[in-house]
Design a protein around this nucleic acid. Structure first.
Lengths: 136, 136
DNA sequence: TGACAAATGCAACTGAGTTGCATATAATGC
DNA sequence: GCATTATATGCAACTCAGTTGCATTTGTCA
């Protein structure tokens, strides 16, 4: 039993080929992926999973807190493994998404919770601009 | 000629009833609105504007920098007047969106620009959680 | 006030995501 | 192993936000 299977079991989720494929795929990614990326990847692995199943698995994983659902103004969702708190640099020229960490938003979060009496559960911070290679 | 008309003229946009209605509606709002809100508001004012026209006007305004297009994980866009740099508290219980300012992200933006050689043009920061009244 | 570029309305379309329901399958107990 | 059962999947049809093409209307400026 590999680590992906253990994660599923620990979350009361059956180990199915589709779930294992999606979870391990997302584990390998360094930037958030959309549903299309996932379907293409699975097809390349010579497996077949219905789009609907992919949507449902992603929804399940989000609810269990295994992955995060993000939006970068593209009119669709992207998904990444949950875990460390980090943010994104999104290049508006080529669409590349880079991860970035050490943003110390949690101090700000604490301050807001007190000032506004708003119970902050999570936040999302994205920077939009032009990446290094597109600047040339 | 009122201020809304002046804004349109300064941006090389013709003054049409639909544009005036949308721009003045968004000027009055304290939280970002979706397309449905806009259409309902216009209908209440006994005007008729096609949905397509609303979409096109919003796109035009975004391109001109008059308004900002936002996403709060709802699968649709929301719009607000551009201007001061502020962020949002989104209640996951009732859906209410509250504005918040003084977040000093620009220091962080500067630091990232240097460290990552990424030209940051804008950022988006949202806090998700439970608002004051939903906490009771 | 007429010309013309720009804006609008209509209809048809796209693409992401959802729902209902019948079938298949992973986990569990025997 | 094998039957049971809750759960997951596939298919088809649908919804909802937003887009495109094209003909018509309208605001602006000479």
């Amino acid at each position: 039993m590999n680590s992906t299977q253990i994660i599923l079991r620990n979350n009361d989720l059956k180990s199915t080929p589709a779930r294992l494929a999606i979870l391990s795929f997302l584990s390998e990614q360094s930037a958030p992926r959309d549903v299309e990326d996932i379907i293409v990847h699975i097809a390349n692995e010579h497996e077949t999973v219905d789009r609907v199943t992919v949507y449902r698995i992603l929804e399940t994983f989000v609810k269990k807190g295994l992955i995060k659902r993000l939006e970068f103004g593209e009119g669709k969702y992207r998904y990444e493994l949950a875990g460390d708190d980090h943010h994104h640099l999104i290049c508006e020229s080529c669409g590349k998404v880079e991860d970035i960490s050490d943003c110390h938003i949690s101090d700000l979060e604490k301050e807001i919770s007190q000032r506004k009496k708003f119970l902050v559960k999570r936040h999302q911070l994205e920077f939009f601009g032009v990446c290094r290679s597109c600047q040339r």
